[in-house]
Amino acid sequence: MSIPLRNAFRLLFLGLLLAIQPAGAVIETYEFDTELQRQRYQDFIEELRCPKCQNQNLAGSNSPISADLRRELHRLLLEGKSDTEIIDYMVSRYGEFVLYRPPLNKHTLALWIVPAGLLMLGAIAVILLLRRRTHIDTAADDENLHQQAEQVLARYQREEEK
């Protein structure tokens, strides 16, 4: 490869590298008073769901409504609001849809119970199957032993007759 061509390839590669943007990067940078506030902000944008998108959290969404909610979240944190107050603020406007960790109530009961119920059903099925198998196995063993004993006995009898 000639040197100009190689340089052209290098440039192209560099260009491609620069074009790669980390997915889900959030553009704004917010200032916080304390490290704890920053941490809580991070936790909240991971746990809160973008109302416009079907399955993205606030951290991963660049829709305008997510940007607004991040701005509000930042404002509420700086105002010294508690976690419950912030969650109430979001839920009173956008409903429980915005929570990736839904609370346990009569609407979400099925959501919480069904997976555990299915797991229990599966466990019961496995236990029943295992128990039946060992049952069959021991029955077969008994049968085997019986036959062997008969054979041994028969052999003795034959030898005595000789």
Binding site: P51, K52, I65, D68, L69, E72, R93, Y94, G95
Partner: peptide, 13 residues
Amino acid sequence: VDGKLGLDMGVYG
């Protein structure tokens, strides 16, 4: 302009 009332009303689009 800032979507303030929109936010209070739960507007998402």
